[in-house]
Design a protein around this nucleic acid. Structure first.
Lengths: 230, 230
DNA sequence: ACCTGAACACCGTTCAAGT
DNA sequence: ACCTGAACACCGTTCAAGT
């Protein structure tokens, strides 16, 4: 645990993690090898192992960086707006770092930013009158939704509604008629999408608000004041 | 495209994919190397390449097997029960094949079972009076939720509520007091969980029903008969 | 205190042969 | 038609050595 003796040391670890994020953002998780990272840093692969114990510890550090980018819920906004913004912020972070989606909840040693983020969630909901049980339900439902949405979004031909409409149209055109005949309902929806385009932002917010509506009904009545004030 | 000339051929591919599923279920996606798979099949690694073009095509086949395990929505049940059961079925499949969570929607060439499943979704919702827009919203919200839930569940110390309560208790005990002081709300929730345990099934269904409630309100009024009958 | 080079046990995949 | 062996360009990581 010689983590905090010489300040230069910490600085180096930071640089390694920062560069690792850059590499993963650009080349994906597959493109992030210890060797490739070392080369980007202008150093021999083995030099990295003075700063991180192994690749897993590097990933821990990277994931906590992403957590640090997520805006904590602000109780001053009222629980609903606070949850809404933090969910949007989490999705945004996962869009900036697509490689992270599958890793955010799977780390066995959650970092400080991760803990702080979850503590803020619990605090915000508890203060707003949610019971322990309901707090857990809300967190579970919201997080599942955001992770799942990010997971789907990650691999789809992303971009503007126009671009995704275009992609749907091409897919449609490339579909042989005998296949189209087998899946008429799917074809119908895809051709609607080809015309109308697909707006991920709008889609995300629709589902998010749908869940928040549901959460509202889980809330105990005695905490009916929507504004904070403890 | 010599996929269907000799029946022996197809049989072999099936066996390769089946075995690959077994290996991945047991050893995870990391444990599934072409070399390990070959060894399990009692064959030299290169022999596999007569049956699948490459590892990616193998994964395509594996993912479609998982899709085939997912119960298609049955319009005879009414849209709500149909959606509910298919969501539960999808989660179950993802629990049996934890390696699949990140792959279900990321394949560029969706297989027949995948297409059939999505066609059934669109058909069921369309028949129940959902507009094109709403059909897309419902599918997006439900799927995001199921994938995200499965993603979280995948890595958590799974098992019975008692086991997860136990795990929470241990985590709590291992937390140094100065860390606990920094995250009081989180600690509070975890200690509640340690007492009460965490029931994943109940949690999943709570969120699912919350979303289905929300979907109900998205439905056009003119389709108010809840039973099918086209 | 930090960096290096050689080495080990792995990957997916190509290519030229074997039967 | 199917299987094989050797090889190539990669992995993460250990270990002994260098400065």
């Amino acid at each position: 645990m010689s983590r905090d003796d010489p300040p230069r040391q910490t600085l180096r670890v930071d640089r390694v993690v920062t560069t690792a994020l850059d590499v993963a953002d650009r080349d994906g998780l597959d493109g992030l090898s210890m060797r490739a990272l070392a080369q980007t840093l202008g150093v021999v692969p083995m030099a990295l192992y003075k700063h991180v114990a192994n690749k897993d510890e590097l990933l821990d550090g990277m994931v906590d960086r992403v957590w640090a980018e997520v805006q904590a819920p602000d109780p001053a906004l009222g629980w609903r707006e606070a949850m809404r913004r933090r969910s949007v912020s989490l999705r945004d972070a996962l869009r900036r770092h697509r490689w992270a989606v599958g890793l955010m909840e799977s780390r066995m040693r959650p970092g400080p930013a991760n803990l702080a983020q979850h503590d803020a969630m619990m605090g915000c909901l508890g203060r707003s009158g949610f019971s322990f049980r309901t707090t857990v339900h809300v967190t579970s439902a919201l997080d599942a939704y955001v992770y799942g949405f990010a997971l789907q979004e990650k691999s789809l031909p992303f971009g503007t509604p126009e671009e995704s409409g275009e992609a749907a149209a091409q897919k449609l055109e490339a579909t042989p008629p005998e296949l189209a005949a087998m899946f008429p309902h799917l074809i119908e929806v895809v051709s609607e999408l080809a015309k109308a385009g697909y707006d991920y932002d709008e889609e995300f917010l629709t589902g998010l608000d749908l869940i928040l509506d549901g959460v509202e009904r889980l809330r105990p009545e005695w905490a009916s004041a929507d504004r904070p004030g403890e």
